[in-house]
């Protein structure tokens, strides 16, 4: 028996081109916004010379992490190491990309998670989309991103946003659903509006779980930002890619080490933000 050769690939392809054709102007607007976001973060991070930045960052990390002196000192050493490897600008670029993509991803993910927790229909629509997004190999997102946004930081960021969003949606949804029934009843029994209930009871109670989602989102952003170097995203990922192409072990390792340092700092910092249960 001969099965018909379903033109799934062709259909998706023509769909993507059609979207690009009809909504190209929207993509341009979006592209400009993302571009501004990235360069603002980058300018802010590169505003101070490395040493001044490291001092300010260490103090900030110490304060944000509620006086975690080990984290603050460790971060200072990590940042000094990055500077001494001559990767300062590239690292700041990577951090700017991670912060931009995580910010946009969270702005979409947290409200989506809340709505999905409140509405069963939306939850049943969102859930398979999330499954799809998480199981699809991350490289595949790079192709339509290139078609819509060309090469460079913006398509890299768009692919990153798509990749980093699912866990934040899932954990926000889970956090809100796990709010004990009695606490929901307290809110209702004292006469809250649904907005008051959300902001005074549900979100604060769900915060530890939501923060775990934020942490996941930032870590996935970092990993994807590196892969997005394949479509022209800058930063340390590009350095790794060059290292691969030229079989330059030293260059690749240094850039990789820089990514690890950034990953550890971002991970510990977001974890220390999470309120203890």
């Amino acid at each position: 028996m001969i099965l018909p050769d379903l033109p799934i690939g062709e259909t998706v392809e023509s769909g993507v081109y059609w979207l690009n054709d009809k909504f190209g102007f929207l993509m341009d607007i979006f592209s400009n916004i993302i571009d501004i976001l990235i360069s603002s973060f980058k300018d802010a991070l590169l505003f101070l010379p490395p040493f001044a930045f490291i001092i300010v960052a260490t103090i900030l990390i110490y304060l944000i992490s509620r006086k975690n002196i080990k984290l603050a000192i460790g971060s200072a050493f990590g940042l000094l190491l990055i500077d001494s490897m001559g990767l300062w600008t590239l690292s700041m670029e990577t951090i700017a990309l991670v912060l931009s993509s995580a910010l946009v991803a969270l702005l979409i993910a947290i409200p989506t998670g809340i709505i999905a927790a409140k509405n069963e229909t939306i939850f049943h629509i969102v859930k398979p989309i999330l499954d799809f997004m998480q199981t699809m190999p991350s490289f595949v997102y790079l192709i339509p991103a290139v078609i819509f946004f060309g090469l460079g930081n913006v398509p890299g960021l768009v692919a990153t946003i798509v990749f980093a969003m699912p866990p934040a949606i899932r954990l926000t949804n889970l956090g809100i659903r796990q709010v004990p029934v009695e606490l929901e009843e307290v809110a209702t029994a004292f006469g809250t509006t649904s907005i008051q209930k959300l902001f005074k009871v549900e979100l604060p109670v769900a915060l530890p779980t939501i923060m775990a989602g934020v942490n996941q989102c930032i870590m996935l952003s970092l990993s994807m930002v590196v892969i997005a170097a394949m479509i022209g995203a800058r930063g340390l990922g590009y350095q790794v890619l060059v290292g691969i192409q030229r079989v330059n072990i030293g260059q690749g390792f240094e850039a990789g080490l820089g990514i690890v340092i950034i990953a550890i700092i971002l991970d510990r910092l977001t974890q220390s933000l999470t309120p203890k249960k």
Binding site: P180, E185, P204, V205
Partner: peptide, 16 residues
């Protein structure tokens, strides 16, 4: 609910 009724719960239900 705000002005006339209030409730005490079995599991205390305090906001953590």
């Amino acid at each position: 609910r705000r002005k006339k009724l209030s409730m005490v719960f079995q599991g205390f239900a305090l906001l953590p």
